[in-house]
Amino acid sequence: NLFRIAGDISHLVSILILLQTIEKGKTTSGISLKTQILYVVVFVTRYLDLLTTYVSLYNSLMKIFFIASSVYVVWLMTSKYNKKFKEDQDVFPVKYLVGGSFVMSLLFHYKFTFSEILWSFSLWLEAVCILPQLFLLQKTGEAKAITTHYIFALGLYRALYIPNWFYRYYSENRLDLLSVSAGLLQTTIYSDFFYVYYQKVLKNWGFNLP
């Protein structure tokens, strides 16, 4: 359906913006390494089923892209542009996010199996793993516009999944309560950022239109 496609595209775009930002500026300043490492954890733990279940070519390709690109970004940040990488402000206590997500996955899962627990863990972790990035943004104050576009596209992706879940509930009678709960939490975390983004970026664009 349309919402799902738009959500996936938005997710894809967010990563392309991020890669383009890093390559063009040859710097990773303003980008939270912690958030990026958490994304590697999110994608690897969620897409373990790549090895066991086949859904579609689209599905497999997207999963491989998300895993590969997240690992690539972390490599860029730690190795390639390491010399310019100085982020003493990226100090969000990540252990609470990982610990909290793990507890949530033990409390809420569909089956008590290794892969199902990891899958649930990845949902909760994804919901909160933007926090170090938002924290960094707040600490440094002024962010490059491009970084905010990245966060916006990333937030939009899960927000678009919400109407997709409504749609699937009515058309397929499908309800994945875990995805929905974690997705709502994720969108809530972004909501404050969305508001600021709307105020600053979109209004400025409108103002600058010829």
Partner: peptide, 10 residues
Amino acid sequence: PNSKLKKDEL
């Protein structure tokens, strides 16, 4: 609702 979920989302 369907309890046998197919994990086809990303």
